[in-house]
Amino acid sequence: MISFVNVSKWYENGTKSVALEDVNLKIESQEFVTLVGKSGAGKSTLVKLMIGEDRPTKGKIMIAGKEVNRLSSSELPELRRKIGVVFQDFRLLPKKDVYENVAFAMEVAGRPDIEIESVVPQVLDMVGLAERAHHFPDQLSGGEKQRVAIARAMINRPMVIVADEPTGNLDPGNTWEIIKLLMKINELGTTVILATHSKDIVNALGKRVISMDQGKVIRDEKNGKYVLS
């Protein structure tokens, strides 16, 4: 479903700075994959390339049969609606309340109001935020914000959810709440790609682990553990 073929990314800013080097990956439908590595290993670059936020310098990225780096600006929104993204810094729309933030993802996908009014409360209920529907992001805790971000990411039933360090700003209690939610989403049939540098999470999950270092994939194990050396 998702494949990276000889993907490299480097930035020229006086000197050449390599972010990714010859990455080859294949992620199948309904998989739960953890991407591990130290800061600067290339995890976030991989995520950025996947959602078309940046383009690779070399190689190609295929998602559901489409080459992401060849999509035009007008074609990218459609791809992004098929990929739910969750970030460490939540990236919620500050002038919209919880309900509106989640509904926004359905609205941009052109879903009718009647469907939105029925689905959004169900998803908010699933992430435990039904009571907070009309609160604005600045009235929520970090864990709540991340649950809104996950609700927004899953509302359109995307084929994949990419979570880039989603627990980086959370306390342990909220961290496990978020991980449980992501596992639940995966059990419901959605592919989940989780980028993290938390050893505890990776080892507890016992899922496929792709380890990265200095822009390269150094290990790819089916039931892996957190190993960086």
């Binding site: 959602i51 936020e53 600006s73 007008s74 990218l76 929104p77 459609e78 791809l79 992004r80 609606r81 993204v85 990236r91 919620l92 729309l93 500050p94 002038k95 926004f104 993802a105 941009v108 996908a109 927004r152």
Partner: peptide, 13 residues
């Protein structure tokens, strides 16, 4: 930043 978020969510121009 909000515009960037809208783009990432898949909002058309």
């Amino acid at each position: 930043d909000e515009i960037g978020i809208m783009r990432l969510v898949g909002a058309p121009a």
